[in-house]
């Protein structure tokens, strides 16, 4: 894609009266030399895998190989069915779906990295629950994935998307920004609002470290996906309501790069600090080693 920054995407969208997803799809066609049917079809296949992962996480045993995690999506769904969830039913459903996909990932199931496996629950959580709630077509959702992809492309090429490079803000934070911007577009917001949603969302996860217990993509990754889906909905609502990211979204992306580059190695996916090195985190790691 020839657009390197979100402000360029916003300007192109306004000038050409196009959505971010339209621009991304056209750029992908030009770049790859493939037909629109082929590229759209590939993304549609990916969306189906996301829906399958939501379903699998809600209906099958998702206990991970380590035995540490699994079943949380089903707990949240059952609670929501029997009680009034504090965050409201739509947020609770998005959270359950995000947990479901993350748990499928932790149990070595099939998922789509969005943008990574550690953050693979957030976009399906937001998308699949919103599709059910608003009655949107699969085609509408697949277009939304191109919008999310364009946002992620800008973040990845100006900052990073892996925990080892930039901490959890780079993975879960990026996924929240992508889901928030895409949700604005899916609901008919402007290109400008979609870009503001990204900045608003990213600001809320700046500084988040990557500190997986035992080095596994389980604790705290899975619950952070659940929280991430809810935050994405909140950021989309703020942007749709007209709240602006006063620090432009491209500048917020640069802050993520600055913060991630300054993060010590122990907080970048090495399991040498943070939650991984708490007394309980260390005990879990020792027990895992003994079992081998």
């Amino acid at each position: 894609m020839k657009y390197r920054f979100l402000h360029e995407l916003a300007a192109a969208g306004q000038q050409q009266a196009k959505t971010i997803s339209q621009i991304m799809l056209e750029e992908e066609i030009a770049e790859s030399g493939q037909t629109e049917e082929h590229i759209f079809g590939q993304m549609a296949d990916y969306y189906q895998i996301m829906k399958d992962a939501v379903n699998k996480g809600l209906t099958t045993n998702t206990q991970s190989k380590s035995g540490l995690t699994g079943g949380d999506a089903q707990r949240v769904q059952a609670f929501s069915a029997n009680h009034e969830p504090s965050s409201g039913e739509p947020a609770s459903t998005a959270m359950a779906y995000a947990l479901a996909v993350s748990e499928v990932n932790a149990s070595m199931g099939r998922i789509i990295a969005t943008p990574t496996a550690g953050s693979c629950g957030i976009i399906p959580g937001v998308f699949v629950s919103a599709q059910e709630r608003f009655g949107w077509s699969d085609e509408h959702m697949v277009r939304g994935l191109f919008c999310a992809g364009a946002i992620g492309y800008v973040i990845a090429n100006n900052s990073f998307i892996s925990g080892a490079e930039g901490g959890c803000q780079a993975e879960v934070g990026s996924a929240i920004g992508m889901a928030a911007g895409a949700m604005v577009e899916l609901r008919g917001g402007t290109v400008d609002q979609a870009v503001h949603a990204v900045g608003l969302a990213l600001k809320n996860s700046l500084g988040l470290i990557c500190d997986p217990v035992g080095g596994l993509v389980e604790i705290p990754c899975i619950v952070r996906n659940g929280f991430g889906a809810v935050t994405a909905l909140a950021a989309a609502d703020m942007a749709l309501a007209g709240v602006r990211s006063i620090i432009p979204s491209d500048e917020v992306i640069n802050v993520m790069l600055e913060v991630g580059s300054a993060m010590p190695s122990k907080h970048r996916e090495t399991a040498q600090g943070g939650l991984a090195q708490t007394p309980t985190g260390r005990k879990i790691m020792e027990n895992l080693k003994k079992r081998k």
């Binding site: 943008p115 496996a117 389980e218």
Partner: peptide, 24 residues
């Protein structure tokens, strides 16, 4: 550009648990 196209962001389809440590 380190990341080349939309499918390097949405994708790949993969078996978990880590895109860096497993799929990569």
């Amino acid at each position: 550009m380190r990341f080349k196209n939309v499918f390097s962001i949405i994708g790949p389809p993969m078996v978990g648990p880590s895109s860096s440590h497993t799929a990569g």
